[in-house]
Design a protein around this nucleic acid. Structure first.
Length: 230
DNA sequence: GCGACAG
DNA sequence: ATCTTGTCGC
């Protein structure tokens, strides 16, 4: 017997007002005074991602663990559940996290860093997906987004590793990071237990050959495959 | 008030 | 996110 709703916590918010209140409450538990894993130290980096089939109300999540030095896959897991929240900008976490948690639970290796699709501190209430997942798991997390969301950014320099502030008004909430020459940057923000410098260093370390870090690429491929198998 | 807006 | 073929380029 397959209980597909198991991944949704019983007290999970169902309205926007409830979700917003949860964010405002959990926001105070984000740890911002830790640098995070050293850029040159051995590290198990875990990418997480989800894919949807709205027709069948199904969501598939994947967690793929890579050796950060070699990018070799050292563990992977998937989970399938029901879509537990609509897509609302600013409330993405409530749509993705339940199934992501289920996939992480099935991972047998211990993550040293979790790389999320989306934002952390770069969020209207400073509590995006990466921050939320970090608080719930206690793990260091970073957010890597493909779009600047509602924020402004100065164009970073043309070279791999060049960065520019991602701005909410005058506040730097993240960084536009060039991972490949001549290619649009990715947008990095702090999730939990990492500094912005540390987050960018790790993302750069994980993104070789392609714009996106290998963690996200691997997780994306795996959750899509998992969705097909449903 | 209206639209835009991570995935 | 997802709907979707071929095609230009390294």
């Amino acid at each position: 017997m397959t209980d597909t709703s198991r991944s949704v916590p019983p007290d999970w918010p169902t309205t926007e007002a409830e979700a917003t209140a949860v964010q405002d409450e959990l926001r105070g538990r984000v740890i911002l005074d830790e640098p995070g894993p050293a850029p040159d130290a051995p590290l198990v980096a875990v990418g997480v991602d989800v894919a949807y089939d709205d027709e069948r109300d199904v969501v598939a999540a994947a967690a793929v663990a890579l050796d950060a030095a070699t990018l070799e896959v050292v563990g992977q897991a998937t989970a399938v559940g029901r879509v537990s929240f609509p897509y609302v900008p600013g409330l993405l976490a409530f749509r993705e996290i339940p199934t992501v948690l289920a996939a992480l639970d099935r991972l047998t290796v211990e993550p040293g860093l979790v790389v999320c699709d989306g934002y952390g501190l770069a969020h209207p209430r400073r509590f995006g997906l990466a921050s939320h997942l970090g608080v719930l798991t206690g793990l260091p997390t970073v957010g890597v987004a493909k779009n600047p969301f509602t924020f402004r950014y100065e164009q970073p320099g043309p070279l791999r590793g060049d960065t520019a502030p991602l701005l909410d008004g005058e506040e730097e909430v993240g960084r536009a990071l060039r991972t490949r020459e001549g290619v649009k940057p990715v947008f990095v923000s702090v999730g939990h237990r990492v500094s912005l410098d540390g987050a960018c260093a790790q993302v750069l370390r994980l993104a070789r050959g392609f714009r996106l870090p290998e963690t996200t690429r691997a997780a994306d491929a795996l959750c899509r495959a998992a969705l097909r198998g449903v």
